[in-house]
Design a protein around this nucleic acid. Structure first.
Length: 486
RNA sequence: GGGUUGGUAGCUCAAUGGUAGAGCAGUGCCCUUUUAAGGCAUUGGUUGUGGGUUCGAGUCCCACCCAACCCA
């Protein structure tokens, strides 16, 4: 339901729509050939160019017989100057029906105004599409988080910083693909719908295939299929796409999120760690132009700077725990819980002893680590799909990369012993109704080469590189509770 | 799931329990290089929803919806 005021604003625009039709102008016009986008023209600007440019009118400054308005799109903004005297009465009548929000095409010559603003001196203004609703505030943009997320197009139109974050995200993903392809990795696609959701411990979304009469699950990870491809003979592969987890929504969790997984036959986790280091630095350097990433608060003050300079720090899991409490591993399991209780760390949700340690790790190491840190020699219980260390079988050959207080990327020497893998997966599923992926285990029995594998949470990487605090600000359409009306 | 904060005009925000306001946007007029253009005038409200307390509720109480943050 709209209220009367909005109705009035809409009515005015509808009247202009009809006025255009009466004047013989199609308010939702046809194709318009352009020579530049607004941003391209700004970048290549010089006076006296004959140009055709199209975009949305985002501001209008009326000086009487001189009109200045801004033409914008994702590439940027370009000012247009229109002289009423030159245009003539008929053209000005049509121009008078143009509102902020409309798409128009401009034909004219470039010039620079007295105040130094690159501009187009319009010869003709063509209405390309009428906007029937008022745009958000030109100065404050959209502040309401519900509007930002539910109507992202308004956020993109009105909030330049938002558009820039998403442009950066696009560039980050592009550079990751380029980096991997330059090194001989090929991108593959594996099932999003799986009969047995595997490769991680997470609650899946369930769906149903009518013709087959079977339940399927949206994947929680592509891992088990990518490993089948290693069995099949691929040696350098990656998949960069969506995973789905039916869990809570928070500042750091969206039900669907983007994950990179890459596998490299005959490599190990050390080699993968080096590659991730190179990749993230390549991306930061190309997209951000620096390895020092400033994070700012709402007032624009720098609150922290992430230093991505190489080499990145490496440390053993157990040593990091000992940095927090030198006697941690000398304590009894009950003593460890007491230690937590004394410090106000809640461990009631931790069932196993190793989960208590992991909880301490998350709270007192991970969340406080801003600069890159490779955590190595992790306990095997945490990682059922990685190779055990030959010298110390209670540990696994993995790294966990922490940056910006979050786990950004795990890397493994992948487990390829089918018997050990079966045992570990059976142990993980706890003999419950949760099915084992037997076909995956069968594939391993045919032989999978030793391999290094990595995952990178793209959303978290983008958060780190853009200094954004909420995952919703790096996902174009984050999930929200559906709302009636509006 | 629990706690805290918030929801007022299209947008951004005000308003001790006592006449719901401003800026922007819109509309009209003035203005031939403006840029948050400027000046004058003016339209616009079921204060998230539903109850309650009160002479009187945007404001206090209860329930619900939505969101943000914190916790689990």
């Amino acid at each position: 339901m709209e209220n009367t005021t909005l109705h009035e604003l809409l009515a005015v625009r509808r009247q202009k729509l009809e006025a255009l039709r009466t004047a013989g102008v199609d308010p939702f016009g046809a194709a318009f050939d352009t020579t530049h986008t607004p941003g391209e023209l700004r970048a290549a600007f010089s006076d006296g160019l004959d140009v055709r440019c199209a975009g949305r009118v985002t501001a209008h400054r009326n000086m009487g017989k001189s009109h200045f308005f801004d033409l914008s799109d994702s590439s940027g903004r370009m000012q247009v100057y229109l002289s009423a005297k030159e245009a003539g009465e008929e053209a000005m009548h049509i121009f008078h029906q143009v509102d902020i929000g409309d798409f128009v095409g401009i034909e004219g010559a470039t010039f620079t105004t007295k105040t130094g603003e690159p501009s187009i001196h319009a010869r003709a203004v063509t209405v390309l599409s009428k906007s029937l609703r008022p745009l958000p505030d030109k100065w404050h943009g959209v502040q309401d988080t519900e509007i930002k997320y539910r109507q992202r197009y308004l956020d993109l139109i009105a909030n330049r910083e938002s558009m820039e974050v998403f442009q950066k995200r696009i560039a980050i993903v592009r550079e990751i693909r380029r980096f991997l392809e330059d090194r001989g990795f090929i991108e593959v696609e594996t099932p999003m719908m799986q009969a047995v959701p595997g490769g991680a411990a997470a609650a899946p979304f369930k769906t149903h295939h009518n013709a087959l009469g079977v339940d399927l699950y949206l994947r929680i990870a592509p891992e088990l299929y990518l490993k089948r491809l290693l069995v099949g003979g691929f040696t350098k592969i990656f998949e960069l796409n969506r995973n789905f987890r039916n869990e809570g929504i928070s500042r750091r969790h969206n039900p669907e999120f983007t994950m990179l997984e890459a596998y490299w036959a005959f490599a190990d986790f050390e080699k993968m760690a080096l590659m991730v280091e190179e990749m993230v630095c390549h991306v930061a350097q190309t997209v951000c132009g620096t390895l020092q990433i400033d994070h700012r608060d709402a007032e624009g003050r720098v609150i922290r700077t992430i230093d991505l300079s190489r080499p990145w720090r490496r440390a053993d899991y157990a040593d990091l725990i000992r940095d927090v409490d030198p006697d941690w591993y000398e304590r009894t399991p009950e003593g460890r819980r007491d230690w937590c209780r004394e410090r106000g760390i809640d461990t009631t949700h931790c069932v196993e002893d190793f989960e208590v340690t992991q909880h301490v790790f998350e709270k007192l190491v991970e969340e406080k680590t801003m600069n890159p840190l490779f955590v190595t020699r992790c306990p095997k219980e945490l990682v059922p799909l990685a190779k055990q260390n030959t010298g110390r079988p209670e540990l696994v050959d993995v790294y966990e990369l922490v940056i910006n207080g979050q786990e950004i990327s795990p890397g493994y020497s992948e487990l390829n012993d089918p018997d050990v893998q079966r045992e570990r997966l059976e142990h993980q599923s706890g003999g419950e109704t949760q099915k084992l992926d037997d076909d995956f285990l069968t594939a391993l029995e045919f032989g999978m080469p030793p391999a290094g594998g990595i995952g990178i949470g793209i959303d978290r990487l983008v958060m780190m590189l853009t200094g954004v605090e909420s995952i919703r600000d790096v996902i174009l359409f984050p999930h929200m509770r559906p709302r009636l009306g509006a």
